[in-house]
Design a protein around this nucleic acid. Structure first.
Lengths: 154, 154
DNA sequence: TTAAAACCTCAACCAAAGTTGAGGTAAAGT
DNA sequence: ACTTTACCTCAACTTTGGTTGAGGTTTTAA
């Protein structure tokens, strides 16, 4: 059922992306192919997993550059095993956890602050019109600090 | 403490953004200013809240265009009240909830699929090398569908 | 065997969200 | 008064993640 080699068109269709995107990814060093006699790209089936991972990573807000770095930990000469992928994805699980935690924090702020009467509150992380904190670089910047704390690993 | 009018430089410093960003936002219609006698921008203090909201929105993955549309619901002729902001932020709370739910789903996939042995599973939404589902346009596309379901409001 | 579909390269283009720089004016500090 | 800092406009540039098109070759299907 699963064939040994794939053409660009088949991969593209299968993954729901454009052929041009495959060219683009190859150019960026995210996927690899070899050529047949007529100079057309051929892929090993594991390219499908790579693309799936790229797409999942993008949904987490991970850039292609970061994906590339993560891919660098995969073996070069052999098809990655389950363990290889597992190892690679562990960082991302943590990142995702942080992202989720951050979103929850943001939700709290959104519920409690944007629509609240806190225009006079000095502690509101979304809006603090009192200049006493601003001089220390606080004000709306607090949220940024929270993000940096949470996403430090990146 | 809170002054009645603000200059670009003060707003920028206070919000931790560049002056050029303020110009940019004004150009996009996200904030407004008037000019003094020397053609310099002056802001009402509520510009701070606007910028805070823009920044919070961006952290949720909301584009400036979408922020602009949301701002369109705010009153034009008077400074927005607490209720105005509350109303505006309600949609975003739902969006954020969806985003969080989606992230949790993604985490589940990440834990269960990327690093699993599911290369032969037909139900894996991240990677399904068996062509039976692919012919129906499923495979890695499933994740997209999940996203669309979850984010339909956008 | 011939037409259509798929593929190739390379360069140019797109959108979002800004940033940078040039050339000049206004305001503030000493 | 003068010098530094802040401000102005406008155009061009940057990055990310691709897409589009021109001009030409290869594969596939009838």
């Amino acid at each position: 059922m699963t064939e040994a080699t794939w053409s660009v068109g088949r991969v593209a269709k299968r993954c729901g992306i454009n052929v041009s995107t495959l060219h683009f990814y190859e150019n960026k060093g995210l996927i690899k192919s070899w050529r047949n006699d007529g100079n057309q790209r051929r892929y090993k089936p594991d390219v499908l997993r790579r693309i799936s991972v790229i797409k999942a990573a993008q949904k987490m807000g991970i850039s292609l550059e970061e994906v590339k770095q993560a891919f660098a930990s995969l073996p070069d000469n052999r098809t990655p095993t389950v363990e290889d992928w597992q190892l690679m994805s562990q960082n991302w699980q943590q990142l995702l956890d942080s992202r989720i935690a951050y979103m929850l924090k943001l939700r709290e702020y959104l519920t409690g602050c944007i629509g609240c009467g806190c225009l006079s509150m000095t502690k509101c992380p979304l809006y603090n019109p009192d200049d006493t904190l601003a001089s220390q670089g606080s004000g709306p910047v607090l949220l940024e600090q929270a993000e940096q704390k949470v996403l430090k690993r990146r």
